[in-house]
């Protein structure tokens, strides 16, 4: 088994109206329930708006705290799921469904270490 990060990218400051967001959230709930039922869910949550991000930088001797987000652009990480899958195709099956559910671009990346290896719970 490999753990995969399934990251959702969303446009900054765009909050869909309740009648659009409501059904999406319901489908997301169902999606997470299916992940749990398949024993594939490690972690899942959405993030607050990217405008609320804070960036910390070490510049050699001082640590600087500034307003974020770190990466420039009009789209930022909006939330993510960590899933366990036997291979990339397995992770892509989940990611595909998430893309259909949210309409957002999704990025899938494998974690470097296998579950249970050094540094993990």
């Amino acid at each position: 088994m490999t753990q995969y990060l399934i990251a959702m990218y969303q446009p900054d400051g765009v909050v869909p109206p309740p009648e659009v967001l409501g059904p999406i959230m319901e489908k997301l709930e169902a999606f997470n329930a299916d992940l749990r039922a398949a024993d594939a869910l490690v972690f899942s949550n959405g993030l607050t708006d990217a405008a609320s991000a804070t960036v910390i930088r070490h510049n050699g001797h001082d640590v600087m705290v500034t307003d974020g987000p770190y990466a420039e652009g009009k789209e930022h990480l909006g939330g993510f799921e960590i899933v366990e899958a036997p291979d990339l195709d397995g992770a892509l099956t989940w990611a595909r469904r998430l893309a259909e559910t949210t309409g957002l671009p999704i990025e899938v990346r494998a974690f470097a270490e296998a579950p249970g290896a050094a540094g993990q719970a």
Partner: peptide, 14 residues
């Protein structure tokens, strides 16, 4: 290697 693309012929659905 890193993203574990599987070595297999896809199932009939895919």
């Amino acid at each position: 290697r890193d993203s574990r693309i599987p070595y297999r012929v896809p199932s009939s659905g895919e």
